[in-house]
Write a protein that binds this DNA or RNA. Structure first.
Lengths: 134, 134
DNA sequence: GTAGATAGTGACCGAATGGATACCATGACG
DNA sequence: CGTCATGGTATCCATTCGGTCACTATCTAC
């Protein structure tokens, strides 16, 4: 477990269990990483990087390490050259998939709602720009 | 909408809808605030403060303003002295309750799992300390 | 001998965030 | 006149976090 997560798990009571979820899942790329591993079962570092929008190695590594420390995924290193490292979901990680899906669909609904609001309040004559995935 | 939320809603694509949810719900006290308003229907500033663990007024105000800006709750000011301000969920806020509940129950399960792990790896002879709510 | 592929690490930076402390405006009440 | 209650604001600080840039180790293939 990450030190941060451990502190939360040890010290916080039931009043804020939701914040535990957010502490664990709430990092840049983390929900996307979990979704991808839910779909692909096993992915190498480079594959993950390409499927996401190529975050810098530094950032991706940090996210993966945190998810590993928090027990959501496993990292398998093959001692060979060039290196090969595989990531896959742990049981805990698989258990988080329904929540990740819930986050995704509520977020999508929220974004759609707010985009309608924006269009209503602030109509742009230009056509919609292509929406670029993060 | 908060500027931050608007940027996310405008610029991010569907790849990371989950991160929209986290941007909106992921602040200190926010899930707790939403839960309390789900239970109590309407709460004044001071009542909220007492039901939570008395965060500083500065912090609570900021969380409430952000939730209001993001459209999850409404703020009603009665122009009287001493001041009276009521907070309640908006439709958007009510719609977030299932997600908040999902966050809470996954977080609780995760914490329980990890506490078992901690106890297994690092058995403390002392009795359990009372767990203090955040 | 040098280029390429893979999976990183280390040092650093700017912005955002939680939180502490001090202060404020108003009217009722005694 | 002074005090209390309510719902804040202003200022500041330390930490965290995403991100950039430079750098590395090792073997294979040319």
């Amino acid at each position: 477990m990450r030190e941060k997560t451990e502190r939360i798990v040890r010290e916080w009571g039931d009043a804020c269990d939701a914040e535990i979820s957010i502490a664990v899942l709430g990092g840049a790329w983390k929900p996307s990483i979990l979704s991808l591993l839910g779909e692909h079962d096993v992915l190498r570092f480079g594959e993950l990087s390409r499927l996401l929008d190529e975050p810098t190695a530094r950032v991706l590594t940090r996210q993966l390490r945190e998810l590993e420390d928090d027990g959501l995924l496993t990292r398998t290193v093959y001692r060979q050259v060039p290196p090969k490292v595989e990531y896959r979901l742990s049981d805990l990680g698989r258990g988080s998939m329904p929540l990740v899906d819930a986050l995704t669909s509520w977020g999508a609904g929220y974004a759609a709602h707010q985009r309608r609001e924006l269009a209503r309040l602030d109509p742009e004559p230009e056509g919609l720009d292509a929406v670029v995935a993060h």
